[in-house]
């Protein structure tokens, strides 16, 4: 879908932003760009819709070099969500959402229908919100509109530049869930920039870690956690407390069996010293829905199911919000 071939960017003042980027973003994938401040993640993203032009290398969208495409057409086909939300304060919600459809000259009725449909999709009642001004909405509602605005022209690609970082934790979590739902339904290719590893792990199909303008590792969240390519990545992930790396002894375990099984009698079991990640892997391989856990004294302490892991992760998220790395 989107392919970077040896892309570099040197700014006019001589600053090297990124160098020799090579990766491919697949259709329908939510691709996260992450790294510490100044790593070039935002520059990388903005080169896709040519808000920044690369100094070297080529970027292809559907095998077409973006330099050979009409700039306006390119941008109309790429939704853009900003950290600052940036709804136009002098336009109503409807007018804000209608901008790209109007630029590409959709018929009026089609635009109205599209606006209502999109507002519904993010849980904003069209008849209530359609004609409001942006400053009458809460920050979370505004960014929902921001996301919807990016979707309005039915683009194939959506760029999101730290879209939730200005929001409070609870709203942020809600919007992250919305994005996941949305992604399931609309299947757009999303490029998502963040500095929040939790967010990256929660949302990304694949995560691209950048450091000083170069790609360090591109992988799925699981692989990234299991096989960090170098110390930097490990530290970068480890800098946050990893709920996946916590031992099962830290999990709240419930005994679902009336009679405690003996360790010798079950062939699939877990130890309290095992990590959550290990438990997850074992569950994946097993045909059972839950596995018994034993402590070092071979005593049965409870069972672990997928649900327990989710609850653990969720509890963890609320306990330690933020996890910002930069």
């Amino acid at each position: 879908m989107i392919e970077f071939q040896g892309v570099s960017k040197v700014f006019a003042d001589g600053t090297k932003a990124v160098s020799d980027l090579n990766f491919r973003i697949e259709k329908g994938e939510l691709f996260v760009l992450i790294g510490p401040s100044g790593c070039g993640k935002t520059t990388t993203m903005k080169m896709i819709n040519r808000l920044i032009d690369s100094s070297d290398g080529k970027i292809f969208i559907q095998d077409k070099n973006i330099r050979d495409m009409n700039m306006k057409r390119l941008r109309w086909n790429i939704g853009y969500v900003l950290q600052q939300i940036a709804l136009f304060p002098h336009m109503t919600i409807k007018e804000n959402i209608s901008i790209v459809p109007e630029l590409v000259k959709w018929p009026k009725e089609a635009i109205s229908k599209r606006v209502d449909e999109l507002l519904d999709m993010v849980g904003l009642d069209p008849s209530t919100y359609r004609d409001r001004m942006p400053d009458e909405l809460s920050g979370g509602q505004q960014q929902r509109v921001g996301v919807v605005r990016a979707l309005a022209g039915d683009p194939d690609i959506i760029l999101m530049d730290e879209p939730f970082s200005a929001l409070d934790p609870i709203t942020r979590e809600q919007l992250q869930k919305d994005i996941l739902d949305l992604q399931k339904n609309i299947k757009k290719t999303i490029v998502f920039v963040t500095h929040d590893m939790d967010e990256a792990l929660a949302l990304g199909n694949r995560i691209c870690i950048l450091k000083e303008g170069s790609v360090v590792q591109v992988d799925t969240p699981e692989k990234l956690l299991q096989h960090p390519s170098d110390d930097f990545v490990e530290k970068f992930i480890g800098a946050r407390q990893d709920p996946w790396g916590a031992p099962l002894s830290e999990m709240t375990l419930y005994r679902s069996r009336t009679q405690a099984p003996l360790k010798e009698e079950v062939n699939e079991f877990l130890l309290t010293s095992h990590s959550v990640r290990a438990a997850f892997e074992k569950l994946k391989d097993s045909e059972k829905d839950s596995l018994a856990v034993f402590n070092d004294e071979k005593e049965y302490t409870g069972d672990v199911s997928y649900k327990d892991i989710v609850l653990h992760l969720e509890k963890y998220h609320f306990k330690d919000r933020g996890g910002a790395l930069s």
């Binding site: 819709n49 808000l51 853009y80 900003l82 600052q84 940036a86 136009f88 002098h90 901008i99 630029l103």
Partner: peptide, 27 residues
């Protein structure tokens, strides 16, 4: 005019005159 709004309008594929007419002048 907020630079973020200018960037948003550019990112949405407005031309210079459209930016002027729809964003800068009204604001």
């Amino acid at each position: 005019v907020d630079p973020a709004l200018m960037e948003a309008s550019r990112g949405m594929g407005m031309g210079t005159l459209q930016q002027l007419h729809r964003v800068q002048l009204p604001l």
